[in-house]
Design a protein around this nucleic acid. Structure first.
Lengths: 347, 347
DNA sequence: GGGAAAATTGCAAACGTTTTAAATCGACGT
DNA sequence: ACGTCGATTTAAAACGTTTGCAATTTTCCC
């Protein structure tokens, strides 16, 4: 094993060249003679030289890192979202030689303050922001600061120009309605959350628009709402919906977790899915494939989205485009066995 | 909003102090007058000053980062492992003011070369290494390099001293056997993989040891082996096991993914779980709670383990202990409905 | 062979922080 | 009034890299 060369100075000395020349040679500058460039590259490879990130960052102002502030999560089950998202980001970044920094918010520390720290400390050249609220202080900060970022999700306020990638929940919910309508369903249930998240807004709007397009006055929609993390309230709201005298024949849930609860409660109430009740979710979490009879849902291909977000962010960092980059990804229907024709007779 | 102060120089100028004094004041050195320290702290807070990471790292040699090289993953489903692991690491690190760097291996690039790059570039003060193979070149490199690390998992070679945290799979598999034996089972099946992973070794040893402890010659163990990522071969091996004239009454799978396949194939073969066949897994993936009738398995509390790994690594970095730090975590049995008494009669 | 132009290489400053060693300032005792 | 001591502050070097500008070498033409 050759003696490890750790600095440019050492490498330069061993080649009898100046630090400047070696630095430029490694960077591939044309002004350095080809022969020299090759000689340097060869020596660097053989000596296992890796440039010091801190020094490079300090002088160039570019760290080669992209930051992600981990959403604060309760002690309950972690789904596969984070893993897929992080994997996708990594895949997107690695092709451009960038890496990912994960910053965690301490207990009682706001996500914004962590974000601010990441930005101000110069650790990252840009950041990815997830789970956008309808009005989001993180985006306001980043925009004021003029710091490169891409949001996964959207704000409600459309005056505010920024880079985002989002899944087209509105379209998916319209598709879900159309599919169920064509199967004969006329009485629908929507299970949703009470928090002001943009995705809730958009999906509900998409559903309402699809209903409107049919212009069928016999279509009826019941809505069950509960706080996002209050499982008890959620179950209660769902049961209220299912146990009314005229219950819906098809339930669309804002996301799979809610849909799975609907299926559980339906079974508990003696209903058969999909014979008595069709259920459709959104997200395609792993469990939706295993929960009988198999949940029909939409796949947003998180990993692929994250990869594109990484690409977008790297573009923003490198080119600082004036017009914002935006991408709306259409999720794909994953038809399983939780939906079917509307029951013929009603009690 | 006050004009943003970005460097120590600016902050020092605004306070009419030297850079040195401000730096020391912020670091809380006793030698700086208490009054001055307070004045500086106040000014820094108000101006939103955040020290530049690169500069600090360059001079101090400490980056405040811990590295993790993402295991290369196929295109198939990502379970929640990575998300939980990363969340746990973040939680463990944040209390000490450290953050996480995630490096991804590009297609065709070895995990080792990425690790080497992370280490040599000085981006991280220590690294976490997951999915340890029976003989692992990554650990060999880190040890030779004298770089701080903690492994999640173990090598087979016990001469090699290093810091690790592992789940006690041997104990769990012993526990599974004992539980099933006490339920009357005598004919067992083991579904495992053909790759040389230490955890496979340990779990199988734990099972063998438990069998030995009973000293009951009527106990019989069939083994079905398939490559880890070859779903077809896996299904074939499982069916061979289930369709032999005298099939096992209880199957223990190396991990949940295998156990879920066993349950699926059992149902397909007309067997009822747990009436005709008991199945036990390991990992407690999310799907195991949803796959009917509910898979009995072991929970290794990944998130908590990751948190402890972070603690261990920070200790190693700060104190460079001479004796290796090791922790063996006992997983907890999650009894669901996939196991039961051995069937009475045999065809 | 002389000079200019082109090609190649090198010097030195800069990035923002930490840290060693030294300077400054008061106070106090003699 | 002088030296001394302790408390407080500061100047300057260092970390390893990139880069503007200048220096050196080579090439080429007349």
């Amino acid at each position: 094993m050759p003696p490890r060369v750790t600095t440019l100075k050492e490498l330069a000395a061993s080649l009898d060249l100046s630090i400047t020349t070696v630095s430029r040679a490694l960077a591939g500058h044309e002004q350095i003679a080809l022969r020299t460039r090759e000689r340097v590259a060869q020596a660097a490879r053989q000596a296992g030289y890796v440039p010091n990130t801190a020094a490079r960052t300090l002088v160039s102002g570019r760290s080669g890192f992209v930051g992600l502030v981990l959403p604060i999560r309760g002690p309950n089950l972690v789904d596969s979202f984070l893993g897929e998202f992080v994997t996708g980001l990594g895949e997107g970044l690695v092709s451009h030689g960038a890496d990912l920094i994960l910053a965690t918010a301490a207990l009682g520390q706001s996500e914004l303050s962590v974000l601010r720290h990441v930005v101000e400390s110069g650790r990252a050249d840009g950041v990815v922001v997830t789970r956008i609220a309808e009005v989001d202080e993180r985006l306001a900060y980043l925009r004021e600061r003029g710091f490169p970022f891409v949001a996964h999700g959207r704000l409600l306020d459309s005056d505010f120009a920024y880079n985002w990638l989002d899944t087209d929940g509105a379209h998916a919910f319209g598709e879900a309605f159309d599919m169920l309508y064509d199967l004969g369903h006329r009485h629908f249930g929507l299970v949703t959350i009470s928090e002001p998240m943009t995705f809730r807004h958009l999906r509900q709007d998409g559903l309402a628009a699809a209903i409107g397009r049919r212009g069928d006055p016999s279509v009826r929609l019941d809505v069950a709402t509960a706080p996002r993390f209050d499982r008890g309230a959620r179950i209660q709201a769902i049961n209220r919906m299912l146990q009314q005298p005229e219950r819906p024949t098809a339930v669309i849930a804002l996301f799979d977790e809610l849909a799975l609860t609907v299926m559980e409660e339906a079974v508990r109430a003696g209903l058969s899915v999909p014979r008595d009740l069709s259920v459709v979710g959104f997200d395609n979490v792993v469990a939706s494939a295993y929960a009988p009879p198999g949940l029909t849902t939409f796949d947003a291909s998180i990993r692929q989205c994250a990869r594109e977000i990484a690409d977008m962010l790297l573009t923003v960092i490198a080119e600082r485009p004036t017009a914002p980059l935006t991408r709306l990804i259409r999720p794909t229907l994953v038809p399983r066995a939780s939906h079917g024709p509307a029951p013929q007779t009603r009690s």
